[in-house]
Amino acid sequence: MYQAKNISYSIDRMKILNQVSVAVFPGKFTAIVGPNGAGKSTLLKALCRDIIPNEGEITINNQAISTYTSKELALTRAVLPQKTHLSLAFTAEEVVMLGRTPHSTSNQQNKAIAHEVMREADVYHLKARVYQTLSGGEQQRVNLARVLAQLHDQQEHPTYLLLDEPTSSLDIAQQHGLLDIVRQRCVERGYGVAAVVHDLNLAAQYADYFLFMKNGEEVGQGPSQLMLRKEMIEHTFSYPVELIYGENSDIPMIYTKGSTPFENTSLLNETINSR
């Protein structure tokens, strides 16, 4: 289990995270949602060990994250950012091969693994293309293949995949394509997944657990069925929503109407008063 316990983080006395806890279970998909500036990405950065929280602790498989060496950590969790800017003109294949950096397997094995995951991410045909000449969606799939290559080898302990708004620059087909693969890994290989997602409907279709965040604090967390409620979403995002259920589906469609929240003064006042 990948766990953050009561972590707080501030920059210049401004609290970005305030006593946030979250648990990411192997084989489960946890979505982190909330409005802009809620501290979602900061939480993910803390989970990656990009930043060290001022308070609280983070453990992976019951071991404090600070005790991991860089290499051990890289063998335990991979991170897929929103966008990756490459400073050099590597080919797609070379980028995927970089996912093998923490491993000491032979070049030949690495290449075989790279090709395998590139086929899964549907980028094998791009392998000789220079990364910078690819479209945004293709680049993101190449990076997905890179993190899959990083987590490819079976480890004795559970492994985790952290994603920071992985689908924000993708079209609808690509969004589902990427999350399908992530979901599949989650189920078949038991990866624990934590993803910051902006699109609630997208998150609703893939996540087992939800963490709702607002103003650096947890609003609520738990299994999707319990968390995807009108009040929870409206309170978190300060915007009116309707939940629509399909005939044979227990996953709601979250419907928002195109008006600015400032016009809905009654709801806005209500949410302000509730804080």
Binding site: D50, L73, R77, P81, L88, T101
Partner: peptide
């Protein structure tokens, strides 16, 4: 050389790949 290749992805990406 290997670390520099990973740093081409960005510093935090390289860190995520276990590069110090």
């Amino acid at each position: 050389c290997q670390s520099l290749n990973a740093i081409a992805l960005g510093e935090s990406e390289a860190r995520h790949l276990g590069v110090e």
